[in-house]
Design a protein around this nucleic acid. Sequence first.
RNA 1: GGUCGCAUAGCUCAGUUGGCUAGAGCGUUACAUUGACAUUGUAAAGGUCCCAGGUUCAAGUCCUGGUGCGACCACCA
Length: 720
Amino acid sequence: MEPKFQPKEIEDLIYSSWQDAGLMKADPNSSKKPFCIILPPPNANADLHLGHAMYVYEDLMIRYYRMLNYETLWLPGADHAGIETQYVFEKYLKKQGKSRFDYDRQTLFQMIWDFVMENRGKMEGQLKKLGFALDWEKKKFTLDEDIVAIVYDTFKKLFEEKLLYRDYRLVNYCTRCGTSFSDLEVVYIEKKDPLYYLKYGPFTIATVRPETKFRDTALAVNPKDRRYKKWLGKTLEIPGLLGEIKMTVIADPEVDPKFGTGIMKVTPAHDPHDFELGKKYGLPVTPIITTQGRMDFSWFLGQKNIPEKYRIRAEKYHNQKIAKARTLMVEDLKADGLLVKVDENYTHRIGTCYRDGSVIEPLPLEQWFIKVKPLVAEAKKIVQTGKIKIHPKRFQKHLITILDNFIDWNISRQIVWGIRIPAYKCQKMSNGKCQMSKGWFVSLEKPKVCSNCGAKEFEQDPDTFDTWFSSAQWPFATLMAAGKKYYDNFYPTSVMETGYDILRAWVARMIMIGYFITKKPPFKNVFLHGLIRDRQGQKMSKSKGNVVNPMEMIDKYGADALRGALIFNVKEGGDLPFSEEKVIGMRNFTNKIWNIGRFLELNSKAENRNLKQVQNSEQLNELKKELTAEKKNYIRAMNGYKFSQALGEVYEFLWHRFADYYIEELKDALQNGNIEVLDTLKEVYFENLKMLHPFLPFVTEAVWQVFKGKNDFIINSKIV
RNA sequence: GGUCGCAUAGCUCAGUUGGCUAGAGCGUUACAUUGACAUUGUAAAGGUCCCAGGUUCAAGUCCUGGUGCGACCACCA
């Protein structure tokens, strides 16, 4: 044996020997108890980051349960990551002076497909580098045909059970990405914008968005506000930049009399709050901003007999970007004497795109929504009755709160990289012949006729599903795609392990959709890990330049060292600061493990063995007692999801008791050839190797095989 | 504004149902070693366990209040 453990030279070899021996494959026909984890599918197109290395929790569970004689399946996969990937691809196009608008739908999709497939292998190779015992033969991609078929089925079922509806409503729209987002994907930031006080007939109103006022449909005040009482219900003609607008004054308790002037203009088409008000009072929705983020005055310019002055103005504003139009209008407002004052120090919070940071425009669009109420109710029941257990426990409350606050889920995305929605709009809808579901029908195959009215003219919805819609189906979809035996044996899965930050976006939705389709919870346990931060506790991000590449760590110190550093001395579910020093510390531990083995191996060859020396029997008994206690603590910790404690237990024992104390004490006896001492030390050592194997698979395997031979794999031994 | 979490050694953090003479990693100091390992060992320094009350034979641990951080959610023109 080398005097030092050399992970770089042997890790890859060991990993392929596991693969060759079929150790990571699950047998769906096995009579053993099943234990199954579905890997949260990483983005097929991106390199792994340190957060992915946290899946080491999954690996250690898989290995541990395998060593407890379970039939284990850890199923890998990859996510197409719709918006993320299309965004990256568009940046790549831009570098070549192109844009997505230069290609038709099929070509663009194919280009992104090729782009992703080229990169996909990288991510998989990195999972192997981490030593993950994944069953590669069962790997799945969210755009695989069989997965898409299952996703389509789910959509159809939701449609048939009336949990799916199409609605014209305000969606969060990023004009730069060219797609809408769900509420979860909007990032609010504090921003300073001028607040304009405008003369508005007999009133003064305050607004940061004067550009939308052309399409105001009402004025609202608080019903208790005495100042405006006499105007209630009256319709006024308000002079504006393009002539007079008719507007009714309505009262609503939600209007804050203390804000601004206490009177508010209602713009249902471009403000979520106003949209709700509009709905409540039956106000028309009249958009003035396009999905390109430009002003649309065609509604005005199409009118007859427009005074010249207004026509010139409207033409000036038309098709301008929002910010530019606002500047132009403020000038004209000044000229007309309609601008009362400007508060330059007004700060408010605005929604921005989580991808590129541009301002999110609330725009009225027709989209697919999932009615979540019945799904949420079932999911909540499952969690509350303990059919799904959450670890650490405090996240259960969190999950319940999340479920309580779930609003209908917008699943339409206006991008091509994803699963195209299998819904069709019948042309006859417009002339009233196809009334069913507002003229929409769902078809899994390319349809020949409208399934509602038999008409032959229809168009497929150009949109694709929100990536989370397919992710929400991942546990049952992957197992169904793997085959009936897999589904029957391994579903519901044992544990869903992921970061607590996607409890809402993913875990809650998996429970909702999973139960809806299978009538079973998709998993029995949820284990949540924390977020990795840098050594100062700061979030890692490219802009801060504090990102650590896991592959670099593996290259320098070995996969075991990195894995250990992520588990050792941390609280499950808590955020953990990452430091290279900690990896070095764990590298030292792997080396210690190696060298204990080396020492025992060297002494195994000693020639002058004396079987009769038993004067150390008392110490040997003490040692065995300590081992028993250690193992008991280890198993209790492992079964209770206290992995850090389990690792700490073995670390402490093996290094500071076994090596520092017992080996030193028994060294002389050992070197004098006392075989009983040797055998006991070896036995205790092997037991510790087994306990460590789930955490540090490579070094434990390497030493194990020094003693047991190349064909004996440590994972095939049993912990109890 | 709402919810949750966190405050323990110089730094980063563990501390299981109350039993602590409070631990680990890294760092610091002294010493040892051509010996399995310097990626080592032995020893040492270093803590009012945020503050104030309370429960208890016993509180780092449980309860109440306060202070200071952090995260998530909601977002008022």
